[in-house]
């Protein structure tokens, strides 16, 4: 690895490289976030924004249980997505890092393509597949099963399927990276010490890829609290999630302050949950060390 070279901010070399990013992300990421925060202290009257500087919007947010039910549902769906993604990604990532060597590149291409293809298209493909007159039911009825078996579209299960589908590649990639960084000799040492494959796996491999598990979980969790296409197209908008609620607040109700407040609540609650979990895991690790 290259050594880190000390640089001062007066050095034009550093300025040229770092300044564009700093400018871009402060003017088009941080500043909009700050403004979103400021907007929550305004009101909306007759679809017009009024600069009133009071807590009216926040009172509204905290007094309507409706918003919080939807938020709870969103968090629950996101947590379920994380768990399922990790379970299905682990064998793939493990295989890629250890046993699929001969086909590694082909497998990576197939996974990457499926991952990077336009989300709208993939979700649309699922809707067609799961539709009452779609592929899944056709296949079921052609082997003699009742087609009602797939009354799956427009339920929470379909939403969950879509979310897992859209995000599981993140878990595959992060787990793959951390498994391939594991020093093989540690696992061989476990074998020498008499551990079977499963025991070595459970006591050596799994703990060592904790950083990958954690990175994947955080990424998937934060991205899935913002899921919008899946609940709308696959879930049929029946049990709305936060992103859909926020979108409606902006589009249908044209209430910017409320939408801004709901956006912030969603972000703050998700980040808080991530921090809480990292604290819990950190404590457990410290406890083990002691």
């Amino acid at each position: 690895m290259a050594d880190e070279v000390p640089r001062s901010w007066r050095d034009p070399d550093l300025l040229i490289k770092a300044l564009p990013t700093v400018l871009l992300q402060t003017t088009c990421f941080l500043a909009p976030l700050v403004m979103t925060f400021l907007l929550t202290f305004q009101r909306s009257r007759n679809f017009q924004l009024q600069w009133s500087w009071d807590l009216w919007t926040w009172t509204d947010v905290f007094s309507k249980p409706h918003y919080w039910t939807i938020l709870g549902h969103t968090i629950f769906m996101a947590a379920a997505t994380v768990a399922i993604c990790l379970i299905i990604a682990f064998p793939i990532a493990y295989g890629l890092a250890t046993r699929f060597k001969a086909w590694e590149n082909e497998i990576k291409v197939l996974i990457t393509f499926a991952f990077i293809t336009d989300a709208t298209l993939k979700i649309y493909g699922w809707a067609l597949f799961l539709d009452k007159n779609g592929m899944a039911n056709y296949a079921l009825s052609s082997i003699g099963l009742p087609p009602e078996m797939v009354a799956f579209l427009y339920t929470d299960w379909a939403t969950l399927l879509g979310m897992v589908y859209s995000l599981s590649a993140f878990a595959i990639f992060t787990l793959y990276l951390s498994i391939s960084n594991i020093d093989r000799s540690l696992i061989l040492a476990a074998y020498d010490a008499g551990a079977g494959k499963f025991r070595a796996h459970w006591e050596v491999t799994l703990p060592l890829c904790k950083p990958g598990i954690w990175a994947g979980s955080v990424l998937i969790f934060l991205l899935s609290v913002g899921a919008f296409l899946e609940p709308k197209v696959l879930g049929g908008g029946k049990s709305p999630m936060s992103a859909e609620l926020i979108r409606q607040t902006f589009e249908t109700r044209v209430n910017w302050p409320l939408g801004a407040a709901l956006t912030l609540v969603l972000m703050v609650v998700s980040v808080f949950i991530v921090l809480l979990f990292s604290r819990l895991i950190g404590l457990k690790r410290a406890g083990l060390a002691a």
Binding site: C28, F29, A31, P32, L33, M35, T36, L39, V218, L219, L222, L223, V225, G226, A227, F228, A243, I246, R247, F250, W256, G259, A260, T263, L266, M267
Partner: peptide
């Protein structure tokens, strides 16, 4: 990278 795109879109739209 870890910011949901829909929310990023909305925040930028407000901006």
């Amino acid at each position: 990278l870890a910011f949901p795109q829909l929310l990023l879109g909305i925040v930028l739209l407000l901006w």
